[in-house]
Simulated assay, not measured.
Amino acid sequence: MYTLAELAMLRAVDHNAVLPGIDTKTGNQVPASSLTQLSQISQLKTSDYWYDPAANMVRVV
């Protein structure tokens, strides 16, 4: 985490720099209604990512 002094130095070097989380919103800005439902995610363990209903987790390989 940056201190206020470090952020001030960054601003002094480049006034137009975009500092993520300070000049922009953080987190996923997509509405929750547009996200894929768990029931639509594959449960095949050979997929790149799959839903594990026993653990209630999406696993990513």
Rank of each mutant, 00 (worst) to 15 (best):
P53S: 09
H15N: 12
L44N: 14
V30Y: 10
L44V: 08
T26C: 03
K45I: 07
T46D: 01
D48C: 12
Y49P: 03
N28S: 08
D52P: 00
L4T: 14
L35K: 07
A5E: 06
M9G: 09
S42T: 08
L7H: 04
K25V: 00
R59E: 00
H15M: 11
D14Q: 14
T46G: 04
A5S: 13
M9A: 13
N16T: 14
Y49Q: 06
V13M: 11
N28L: 03
M57Y: 08
A5G: 10
T26W: 04
N16V: 09
N28R: 06
R11N: 02
P31V: 12
A5K: 15
T24A: 04
Q40L: 07
T26M: 01
Y49K: 05
M1S: 09
L19R: 13
N28Y: 07
Q43L: 03
E6D: 06
D14I: 10
Y51E: 00
A32S: 09
P20I: 05
D52F: 04
S33N: 14
P53I: 09
R11C: 00
A55C: 03
L4S: 15
S33P: 07
Y51M: 00
A8G: 11
L10F: 14
A32F: 05
N16S: 12
L4Q: 14
A32M: 07
Q29E: 09
M57V: 02
Y49M: 11
L35S: 08
Y51I: 05
K25D: 06
D14M: 10
D23F: 08
D14S: 14
D48L: 10
Q37Y: 10
L7R: 06
A5M: 11
D23P: 02
L38Y: 08
S47M: 05
D52R: 00
G21I: 02
N16G: 12
D52Y: 03
V58I: 15
Q40G: 10
P53N: 04
N28W: 08
L44M: 15
T3G: 00
D52L: 00
L44Y: 13
A32L: 05
H15K: 15
T3K: 03
Q29L: 11
D48S: 10
K25A: 09
N16C: 14
G21Y: 01
M9C: 08
N16W: 15
S39L: 05
V18W: 04
K25Y: 08
T26P: 01
R11V: 02
T24W: 00
Q29R: 14
T26Q: 06
Q29N: 09
D14L: 08
L38T: 12
L7I: 07
P31Q: 10
M9S: 15
E6V: 07
A32T: 10
S33H: 13
